[in-house]
Design a protein around this nucleic acid. Structure first.
Lengths: 288, 288
DNA sequence: TACATCGGTTCAAATAATGAAACGCAAAAT
DNA sequence: ATTTTGCGTTTCATTATTTGAACCGATGTA
């Protein structure tokens, strides 16, 4: 008996060859890293962001690495359901109107955004600084509720803005209590250096996570934007599963010790409220 | 030379056989009714609505007609991108958080919703009745901007609510200027009778559309909800392509002739503003 | 004029989707 | 207590579907 590795463009499978009949063995052996067609198509949407509103066919193909025909088929499928729309003139694709409907439908069913926003607002009033609450959406951690500081010099966080796991306090708070597999996936890819202080070495980040697990609070100082300090605490869903984080972002110059004490305390209570809102419980070994 | 029909479970193609080489002829001939895998997966999302927030695997399979394994694969793909999320306890699927991000991103890029809402509000103040603006999203016409009447007895339209093509004034206004193929598709399926007055016979609807094309205004009286009158006018995008409709919905008892004159006029100007907003032009043969 | 790039199309080859059957489990019915 | 029913999930051979290199015509550029 011997093993055989069969690699296709989208998956790597380990076959166990014994006698005459090769059979794919499941479980520990089969490493199906291959995204299904559906997954690949949906991944196209991730290439949209604040800086890239409109994308052409060839750009999509380049960005994704898919063949042009494949990309086109995906896009037409997405278009027919309103997930993207094509500008008649420029032939570029934009995010489609379908999101409007589904977002409203989801809010109608699970009106968490409102509740989350009030928690963010309370967190803002008790600290005077920009507060935001983030949650996982697919593979990303995005801020869902924001309450900006009223001060002239303030940090701005856009609702819907993704929080890089490795570079933000929210991201670290999340990873510290995520499953090992998730952490590995999040830190396994190329880690973008948003500033000169961004940690891009996974080893250093693992150390940080260890510290966060001990205190239940995470910090980031200038790792996402220069001179900006982040403080965050995780909140949990049923069974102690990590859901997201409550966070404060403030200019580093205002970070006096006295203020930080208030901020940390406020974040903790906000995180507790969020955990309650989601019907969650804290994990066994959580520090508070 | 002869024709050959090749049917697969998911598509029907017409081949033109001439000589020795069979080649699928495109355009008028090839009827690719076959949804791609991606399309099928996305279709699952359409089963969510106001009354059905959570759907289980088997229900999805029944509703869609797909095999359970297939359905599960689709759902896990959708879940991994945050388009649905599975309740840990009940194992039911809900709409996911991804829509939050994309909806906000789209609004950040193309802030039409704001503008549309103000137009709806203006339409409401000039008529005193519930006004709403709809647009196509994928296959459906959904209301994107709403301004409710202040009167006690008012018609309520939810933002994001789909407007059935055959039963609402907005739907008729749209179909009247849509492509023949689109009309056929919209009226080809089973037409739900929302009230006893709903027209479910496509022939009758085609007649109505003819009338709408002449006047540029569509009406519905009690065809979507009893005792509710709808008035709508289409608005257009570049090249005279139909985009959606501006509409008023009011209790039938308030529909005096004098009021209707004002309403029609107001709707027309709202539609014109919407057409301008979308950088659109009216089709050649449009009545006004 | 030549050259590059764009969106889009084609079709045989190769892959990934499919679906019937079976499994384990829990709740409902007997 | 036992059987039945229905759920979500897994399996795996079959085959329908995706895939991608090459191609097309249009448009833009050196």
């Amino acid at each position: 008996m011997y093993y055989m590795l069969k690699a296709t463009p989208n998956s790597v499978k380990l076959f166990m060859q014994s006698g005459d009949k090769a059979s794919a063995t499941k479980g520990v052996d089969t490493v199906t890293a291959g995204p299904s067609t559906v997954l690949k198509a949906l991944t196209l949407l991730d290439f949209f962001n604040e800086r890239r509103h409109s994308i052409g066919l060839s750009d999509f193909a380049k960005l994704s690495g898919y063949n042009k025909s494949t990309t086109l088929r995906f896009l037409t499928a997405l278009e027919s359901k309103g997930f993207v729309e094509q500008d008649e003139k420029t032939r570029l694709y934009n995010l489609g109107p379908a999101f409007l409907r589904f977002a409203q439908l989801r809010e109608a069913c699970f009106p968490v955004v409102d509740a989350v926003n009030t928690i963010a607002r309370d967190l803002n009033t008790s600290t005077g600084e920009t507060a935001h609450v983030s949650a996982v959406s697919g593979e990303w951690l995005v801020s869902v509720g924001v309450a900006e500081s009223q001060k002239a010099n303030r940090v701005i966080v856009e609702p819907g803005e993704p929080c890089p796991y490795h570079a933000t306090a929210s991201g670290l708070a999340y990873l510290a209590f995520a499953t090992p597999g998730f952490v590995e996936a999040a830190l396994g890819r190329e880690l973008e250096a948003h500033t000169s202080d961004t940690l891009t070495n996974p080893r250093l980040i693992y150390e940080k996570l260890e510290a966060v697990r001990k205190t239940g609070i995470s910090y980031s100082s200038g790792t996402y934007e220069e001179e900006v300090l982040g403080v965050a605490a995780p909140y949990f869903g049923p069974g102690g599963r990590i859901c997201g984080a409550a966070a404060i972002a403030l200019p580093a110059v205002r970070a006096t010790d006295a203020r930080m004490v208030i901020i940390e305390e406020s974040i903790r209570t906000a995180a507790k409220r969020l955990t309650a809102l989601h019907g969650g419980t804290y994990p066994e070994d959580f520090p508070y």
